[in-house]
């Protein structure tokens, strides 16, 4: 464990609490893509199957349980408790265009040809693009509530912090995970546009609005 990864994980945790806070305080999931949240739940469930047979650390175990539980809880909130506030007509990204290529990539790039390893690879590729329905929705509506942008910023910061973590691990542990690194770089790159608007507008106290 190094500080980059620790702060990355904490930022990931924070993003989930911000999202829950947004839903509870506005009593609405307006502006949140159900598809992205469903993809994240899929990512956590397919990646953390090793919860049942591999012990890494108490930290690792607790975080995995938390990520699976919180993502399922968010799906419940969106699908049942706050269902009327979710508008599927603007959440129109075709997730099959993401799922299909991720299955193919996992079949091509994996460390071992076994069910858990294929699912692990699949989850890594899927996580890289899971934010796309959310960003697509943002692009369509052209604006976002400030708290929603804080959620996205925390999520993007988590990915960005994993990059120095990998560089650090390369030098200190002689370890490189090419699949995670490639997917992670792509994932972080997807946030660049968002970060630009976040830093130049939201953090200056303005509303998140995309130029027409």
């Amino acid at each position: 464990m190094n500080l980059f990864r620790l702060f990355g994980d904490l930022s990931h945790l924070a993003s989930i609490f911000i999202l829950l806070q947004k839903i509870q305080s506005t009593r609405s999931c307006r502006g949140i893509s159900f598809k992205t949240q469903a993809l994240y739940a899929t990512v956590f469930i397919t990646r953390y199957l090793d919860l049942f047979y591999e012990w890494v650390s108490l930290y690792n175990f607790t975080m995995k349980v938390f990520f699976i539980a919180s993502s399922c809880y968010i799906l419940y909130l969106m699908k049942y408790k706050y269902r009327p506030t979710h508008d599927p007509s603007i959440d129109t990204f075709r997730v099959e265009y993401l799922l299909g290529p991720c299955v193919v990539l996992a079949l091509l790039f994996h460390y071992k040809f076994s069910i858990p390893e294929l699912l692990w690879s699949f989850s890594i590729f899927l996580e890289a693009v899971a934010i796309l329905p959310q960003l697509f929705m943002l692009q369509r509506t052209g604006e976002a509530e400030t708290i929603t942008t804080h959620y996205l910023a925390a999520l993007g910061a988590y990915r960005a912090l994993y990059i120095p973590n990998w560089i650090y691990r390369y030098f200190t542990e002689d370890m490189v995970d090419p699949i995670a690194v490639t997917a992670g770089l792509v994932q972080t790159a997807l946030y660049l546009d968002f970060f630009y608007v976040y830093f130049t507008k939201v953090l200056q106290g303005q509303k998140f609005e995309l130029p027409a």
Binding site: S57, N60, F67
Partner: peptide, 10 residues
């Protein structure tokens, strides 16, 4: 030689 990646990240 590089160590084999272990799935110890989240």
């Amino acid at each position: 030689p590089l160590a084999e990646p272990k799935h110890d990240e989240l």
